[in-house]
Design a binder for these strands. Structure first.
Length: 540
RNA sequence: GGCCCUGUAGCUCAGCUGGAUAGAGCAACAGCCUUCUAAGCUGUGGGCCGAACGUUCGAAUCGUUUCAGGGUCACCA
């Protein structure tokens, strides 16, 4: 049992002996900001003061009288009624051994209780290359999947491929026109709302290379299919280079072909009405602005209906919780899809729709618009080539998803020495070098009794926060918390490095204990970096 | 106009499930390399936490109002 649990149990016991039963979760332990306020602190006496009809300080005194907790040296009452716990040095340094034993698994928690979670992200239309906004969603989604796994959830990563509907029609028409143009035949135009970018021209070139002019008699269906295939292939490749992977790609077309749309439509009938020749779904009954069209006047589906079928399908596949990551421009989507899930008898609270706020790109002091339909978009790939995958990924998860992000390309490129990515990686490389040089000579001694410097103890305390951070990050779906933690950890490591000479042939015992601390720190730092998808180079 | 996001140091932002004295990086200034990576470390200056009111023993954090910026409101997806 860890020290936090130990303290909570002891307090709960004591409070109940004073005549009040409390839940362990009601006891909050936090880490005081200032020196002299102990290692852990609780405000329980202030919270319970009313119930007991006593002043917080008086109650705190009663709680801590005769309270002995293993691993705690001293308990003090401070300020308006905080109870501060001073952890024994042995208890603190014992963590080194734990971390080295657990290795990569250190920090893993059971918060998720193996709950089956389906995490959907990116899901960009297969009509062109991924752009900036997609990249942020990809980075956040991928990190989230790693964090949730670390926190004990059973996560499936999924990409929904919109390979049906009017956008794909446009793609097919655009590709066909470009294909003919490549063959010197300008009789077909790219539709006005089609795809005018270079992507489609490249696709056309591939088709010419592959089949010369033999596709001239193919129908639109052919160009739609090939267009989607080529676009998706590119997207997958770009994502792989961005270190973002998926377990499942689900096709909208497949959902349609399996009759799932009609099935859902049947179930939704009681919540629908006909108007102006279109079929509306009554989403206003669950707080939406207006009712939504699901079947257009011309008889075709709007995007919404297959989407509803898709979400229903996720539940039907046995997932207890769905998480969708969408661009903030989709925020209107939340009410309507939740409403439809409710109408279908699913619990809308089991569907989390997280919005990733917009990214704006700046270069030479000017904003670059990123419309992928104008053909002038800065793609995710270009950005990675310019800034580097590590930099882009780190930067995209360094702020809360709900924060707008201004990405200044010039700044990101010239970040050089002040780049936080390098700062963290540098700390790792330093640790690695010491282990490389010293481990054979001194060995690792995780006993820790010789570690008394402030830099050493502060570092160990920081290491001890890891699993807490994992849980917080998983609960709030906020990967940026990991990024912040990694940076703080790197700062403690650099501080330790500067103040404590590790390899010292005149003090073999101390060297081996400090090396063990290096090892433990390196394990946590590397794992932290891996959670945000950033590499941990051994040399720089 | 409705809805969403955001206003904290000169700049970029943490902190927001209420807690003790407001945090970091960058920029500025002053120090630290005979010894494991100076891509580092230490110190100094810098704040009416957009504004007002309310809830509370206690508010940057919660509520209401208000000001400012961004986004979004299709029978596109």
């Amino acid at each position: 049992m860890n020290i936090e649990q130990n303290i909570k149990n002891s307090i709960a016991l004591k409070v109940s002996s004073l005549g009040q039963e409390i839940n362990l979760n009601d006891i909050v332990l936090e880490r005081p900001k200032y020196e002299g306020q102990g290692d852990l602190s609780t405000n329980i006496a202030m919270k319970l003061a009313k119930v007991f009809h006593k002043a917080p300080v008086v109650l705190a005194k009663e709680i801590i009288s005769d309270l002995n907790i293993e691993g705690v040296d001293k308990i003090e009452i401070a300020g308006p009624g905080f109870i501060n716990f001073f952890i024994s040095k042995n208890q603190i340094t014992s963590l080194i051994k734990t971390i080295i034993e657990q290795g990569k698994n250190y920090g893993s928690t059971t918060l998720g209780k193996n709950e089956k979670v389906l995490l959907e992200y990116v899901s960009a239309n297969p009509t062109g290359a991924l752009h900036l906004g997609h990249a942020r969603g990809a980075a956040i989604g991928d990190c989230l999947s790693r964090i949730l796994k670390k926190a004990g959830y059973d996560v499936t990563r999924e990409y929904y491929v919109n390979d049906a509907g009017s956008q794909v029609d446009n793609l097919g028409l655009s590709l066909k026109a470009r294909y003919f143009q490549e063959l010197g035949d300008n009789s077909l135009d790219v539709p006005e709302n089609g795809y005018h970018g270079e992507d489609v021209i490249n696709f056309a070139k591939i088709l010419v290379e592959e089949g010369k002019d033999s596709y001239k008699n193919e129908n639109l269906e052919f160009f739609k299919k090939r267009g989607v295939e080529l676009a998706l292939e590119n997207i997958k490749k770009d994502l792989r280079e961005f270190r973002v992977e998926f377990d499942v790609f689900t096709s909208e077309k497949a959902i349609r072909n399996q009759g799932k749309v009609e099935k859902v439509l049947e179930e939704l009938k009681p919540y629908c009405y006909q108007e102006d020749g279109a079929l509306f779904l009554k989403t206003t009954q669950d707080g939406d602005d207006k009712d939504r069209v699901i079947i257009k006047k011309d008889g075709s589906y709007t995007y919404l209906l297959p989407d509803i079928a898709y979400h229903k399908d996720k539940f039907d596949r046995g997932y207890q919780r769905l998480i969708d990551l969408f661009g903030a421009d989709h925020h209107g989507y939340i009410a309507r899809i939740k409403s439809s899930m409710k109408s279908l008898g699913e619990n809308p609270d089991k569907l989390d729709i997280e919005l990733v706020q917009m990214v704006r790109l700046f270069k030479d002091g000017k904003e670059y618009k990123m419309s992928k339909r104008t053909g002038n978009a800065i793609s995710m790939k270009e950005l990675c080539e310019e800034v580097g995958v590590d930099g882009v990924r780190f930067f995209f998860v360094s702020r809360a998803s709900s924060q707008h992000l201004d990405f200044d390309i010039d700044l990101a490129k010239t970040m050089g020495t002040s780049n936080p990515v390098y700062y963290c990686q540098y700390a790792n490389a330093r640790l690695y070098t010491m282990l490389e040089i010293g481990q054979a000579q001194y060995g690792l001694n995780s006993q820790g009794n010789l570690l008394v410097e402030k830099s050493e103890l502060d570092l160990i305390k920081k290491l001890s926060e890891f699993s807490e951070i994992i849980n917080e990050s998983a609960l709030t779906l906020a990967p940026s918390k990991i990024t912040i933690y990694v940076r703080e950890l790197a700062a403690k490591i650099n501080d330790f490095y500067t103040n404590c000479r590790v390899l010292d042939s005149t003090n073999v015992e101390l060297s081996s204990q400090r090396l063990a601390l290096c090892k433990a720190s390196q394990i946590v730092l590397e794992e932290g970096l891996s959670l945000i998808g950033v590499s941990a180079p051994q040399h720089m």
